[in-house]
Design a protein around this nucleic acid. Sequence first.
DNA 1: GCTTGACCTCAAGTTGACTTGAAGTGCTAG
DNA 2: CTAGCACTTCAAGTCAACTTGAGGTCAAGC
Lengths: 145, 145
Amino acid sequence: MKLMDIGEVCERTGLRPSALRYYEDVGLISSLCRSGLRRQFAPEVVTQLALIQMGKSAGFSLDEISEMFGDNGQPNVPRERLHRKAEDLQRQIAELKAMREVIKHVADCPAPTHMECPTFRRLVTLAARRAGTSSRRVRRKPHLR
Amino acid sequence: MKLMDIGEVCERTGLRPSALRYYEDVGLISSLCRSGLRRQFAPEVVTQLALIQMGKSAGFSLDEISEMFGDNGQPNVPRERLHRKAEDLQRQIAELKAMREVIKHVADCPAPTHMECPTFRRLVTLAARRAGTSSRRVRRKPHLR
DNA sequence: GCTTGACCTCAAGTTGACTTGAAGTGCTAG
DNA sequence: CTAGCACTTCAAGTCAACTTGAGGTCAAGC
């Protein structure tokens, strides 16, 4: 089980060193030891980081992610709670689908002003009703250098 | 066509006055006129705001939203671009579904450590592969008072 | 005339998730 | 022995999307 420098982890995950150090800081991942000053990571962090990236793009905050999969990918949260997360996700999926329909409609509908198109209004008001009931929050645009 | 005070718009949308003023500031919505100091909004802003909320919970930034539906809900963006947005959304939907599967699995799988469970690893690596190809970014947790 | 309540403006603060920069460490190669 | 490189720490900066707070306006009701 060969250990990796931060640079190698970066290469394999596409993340930047500063991000990995930050994740370690907040306890999302951990390095096994140091070689001199350098952090040494076990190969599993690559999988863990994949999980983290997935969680992020699903709209979970780092806090929620570490809640779901503790320091080593183990969930430290009751099943019931996880099932609620899954339901949350289900709701967010529905919202995204609604949004996709609206966008497709806008792209293709020839009506001069969408606010007057009944299909459009129906899509939006339906979606708005749902939006009120959901509490999903989603991550923001990362600052891409 | 009766005009509305900011307070009424807030009531109908669940948004806070400060948010509406901010949206007006950045040009997402606009008030028709003032009565004294008070902004007067047309009833359509309610629909517009629903659209905005939908966009946000779909992970679009306010910038992207105003790009998609200009100041009055009219898109000022070529169809082709909108179709790309729809495809983006499709990808994000797939990611969310993957995440949902992972969570469901974690909730129910009896394996002592998930990192060793083959199903888990398969789900994660599959999802990671996809995550690399997508560029969807998603809004962050709002600061709920 | 005075209070109350709903609005207003403007500047500054907050949050999460990093990034940036300055200054230092430690191994390797020439 | 020195240079270079990949790493290190730590404090401060950045970004979007608001919120908060101080101080002001205005119409309505007592």
